[in-house]
């Protein structure tokens, strides 16, 4: 069946079954491969995109549920002011190891900063705990988010 969705400011029409997850529409129909497949159950966050500015796990979001709502993916997040800042902070902190989860991490971080421009450690924990980093780059993800928010980046959590 035919679905028209709004991805990164463009209207795109695809012929797929209605239960096809948005992730696979992005990756295999629209050739937007930045969103990653990790679990297929919304457990790891590698597939995180924004729908209406909200972070959503695209691997469990059927295309039929997307409708007209604007979808933003990692490929276009750099066009937003927050997205650009977050990408730059990620590079400055050299967050990446294998890098596979980082598109999802960046999408979650951007959604956090959009809502909470000066996040606390607890805010970061809450917003980022749906995203697994198998290489365990969590300390640098935390530092990069703080840097993007203009906060001191040294890890001074109470122990």
């Amino acid at each position: 069946m035919s679905y028209t969705i709004n991805v990164n400011g463009q209207s795109r029409t695809v012929e797929v079954e209605g239960d096809t997850p948005l992730l696979w529409v992005l990756r295999d129909e629209l050739d937007l491969k930045g969103s990653k497949f990790g679990c297929g159950m919304g457990l790891c966050g590698a597939c995180t995109v924004h729908i209406n500015g909200q972070p959503v796990r695209s691997c469990v979001t059927p295309i039929s549920a997307v409708g007209e709502q604007p979808v933003t993916t990692i490929e276009a997040i750099g066009e937003t002011e927050i997205g650009k800042r977050v990408q730059e902070a990620w590079l400055k902190a050299d967050v990446m190891q294998c890098g596979y989860c980082q598109a999802g991490q960046i999408m979650s971080a951007c959604a956090l900063l959009e809502k909470t421009p000066q996040p606390t450690d607890k805010d970061i924990d809450a917003a980022m705990s749906g995203n697994i980093c198998r290489c365990c780059t969590y300390p640098r993800i935390r530092a990069a988010i703080k840097d993007a928010a203009g906060l001191p980046t040294a890890d001074t959590r109470e122990v």
Binding site: Q87, V95, M96, Q102, A103
Partner: peptide, 10 residues
């Protein structure tokens, strides 16, 4: 990392 600028853009 040399590939990092590509990774942050997906």
């Amino acid at each position: 990392g040399v590939d990092s600028p590509r990774i942050v853009k997906g």
